[in-house]
Simulated assay, not measured.
Amino acid sequence: MSYVSENTVTTIDVTDPLYCNPNDVVSTLKITPILTEVEKYIPWKRGMQLALSSKRKLGFVTGAVEKSKRDNVIIEAWLAANSLVISWILQNVSEPIKMAILYTQSAKEIWKLLKGKYLVSNGARKYKLNKDSYECNPNRKPVTDYYIQLRTEICAFLDAMQKHKEDARLFQFLNGLDKTFGIEECNTAYVTPAKCG
C-alpha cells in the first residue's frame, strides 16, 4: 500500500504490522471465552497473543511496534492499526472491563492495565494458586487435563513470584538512594523501573 505525502511516497508492505487488511474488521478476531471478572486471565491472554500474532499485530500490545515521530503517513497508519487492536481487545472482554479500559489511548497501555489487574502478585493470589494446584486430582480427570491445569496454575504462580522479585529489587534500590534525591526522582523510578539483571 502506498501513500503520497508532500511529494514523497510512503509504502507500507502487506507484511508490515502497520498494514491493515480491508478484511480485518472488529469481528474478525474472537477469543472464547471472553475475559470476565471471574475468567482466568492466563488462558485469555494466550488466546489473544496467538490471535494478534496471526494478524501481525502482537507488537502493538508488547510495545515492539512504536508510534513513529518522523512521518505523518506512518503515524496515521500506526493510529489506525492501534485502534484496530484496541477494538479487538474491547470485543473480547466483558462489559465492566470494557468500560474500564475504553478511553485508554494505546493497545500497549490496555495490555499493561489488564496484566496489572489480573496477574497480581499479592498474598491472596499466591495462596489461591497454590491451593488450586494442590486440589488438582489426576484420579478425577484425564492426565492431559490435569497436566494442562497444573501447568497453567504453576506458570501463573511463577509469573506472580517474578513480579514480586522485581518489585522487591526496585524497592531495595529506592531505599538505597541518597536522601539528596527528592520524592519526584523516586516516583519517576517507580513508574518506569528498569529491568534488574
Rank of each mutant, 00 (worst) to 15 (best):
residue 1 M to P: 14
residue 2 S to P: 09
residue 3 Y to I: 15
residue 3 Y to P: 00
residue 5 S to C: 10
residue 6 E to S: 11
residue 8 T to D: 12
residue 8 T to Q: 14
residue 10 T to R: 00
residue 10 T to L: 05
residue 11 T to V: 15
residue 13 D to T: 14
residue 16 D to A: 06
residue 18 L to I: 00
residue 18 L to S: 06
residue 18 L to W: 06
residue 21 N to V: 04
residue 30 K to V: 15
residue 32 T to C: 01
residue 33 P to T: 08
residue 34 I to M: 02
residue 36 T to Q: 05
residue 39 E to W: 00
residue 39 E to P: 05
residue 42 I to S: 11
residue 50 L to Y: 00
residue 52 L to Y: 03
residue 54 S to Q: 08
residue 54 S to H: 04
residue 55 K to H: 10
residue 57 K to G: 05
residue 58 L to W: 06
residue 66 E to L: 01
residue 67 K to S: 06
residue 71 D to I: 12
residue 71 D to R: 03
residue 73 V to E: 08
residue 74 I to K: 05
residue 77 A to H: 05
residue 79 L to C: 05
residue 81 A to D: 04
residue 86 I to M: 11
residue 91 Q to E: 14
residue 93 V to P: 03
residue 95 E to K: 11
residue 96 P to Q: 01
residue 98 K to E: 10
residue 100 A to E: 11
residue 101 I to R: 07
residue 102 L to W: 02
residue 104 T to K: 09
residue 109 E to W: 02
residue 110 I to K: 06
residue 112 K to W: 00
residue 114 L to M: 09
residue 118 Y to E: 00
residue 121 S to Y: 09
residue 125 R to D: 11
residue 127 Y to S: 13
residue 129 L to I: 08
residue 129 L to E: 02
residue 134 Y to M: 07
residue 134 Y to H: 12
residue 136 C to E: 09
residue 138 P to F: 06
residue 138 P to W: 01
residue 141 K to R: 13
residue 141 K to W: 11
residue 144 T to L: 01
residue 145 D to E: 15
residue 150 L to H: 08
residue 150 L to S: 04
residue 152 T to D: 13
residue 154 I to Q: 07
residue 155 C to L: 13
residue 158 L to W: 00
residue 161 M to G: 03
residue 162 Q to A: 14
residue 162 Q to K: 14
residue 163 K to W: 04
residue 164 H to M: 10
residue 171 F to D: 14
residue 173 F to V: 08
residue 173 F to T: 08
residue 173 F to N: 00
residue 174 L to T: 12
residue 181 F to E: 11
residue 185 E to L: 03
residue 188 T to W: 01
residue 189 A to H: 08
residue 193 P to M: 02
